[in-house]
Amino acid sequence: MSETRYTKDHEWVRVDGGVATVGITQYAAEQLGDVVFVELPKVGKAVEKGGEAAVVESVKAASEVYAPISGEIVEVNGAIEGEPAKVNAEPMGGGWFIKLKVKDAAEVSALMTEAQYQDYVKGL
């Protein structure tokens, strides 16, 4: 599996065989607080980089999850619809949101590396 890349909006992307798994970072999960609801897109939907891909809601507020790269949704994580707390428990693993068929690999390599993201979060 390739390295994990990050966005300024606190999504992470991991590409494996042309398919990108997308979730929200540990930092984002902590900032949101307890997730009580997620709304996932339909499989087959095409999303543009920066477009709204999913919605995540805590007790207090609703937030968008943006598509870090463009592509077609090939799978969504039904497990977090039934058990939203999984997003807090395993944000970087079992709490993933969507899988995208990568349209342009250059969009992935343009994202922040782990070290760059950690620096970015430190500066917030």
Partner: peptide
């Protein structure tokens, strides 16, 4: 304080 480390859900 909007919340403490326990978080809104647990505090509630």
């Amino acid at each position: 304080p909007v919340q403490f480390p326990a978080g809104i859900l647990k505090e509630h």
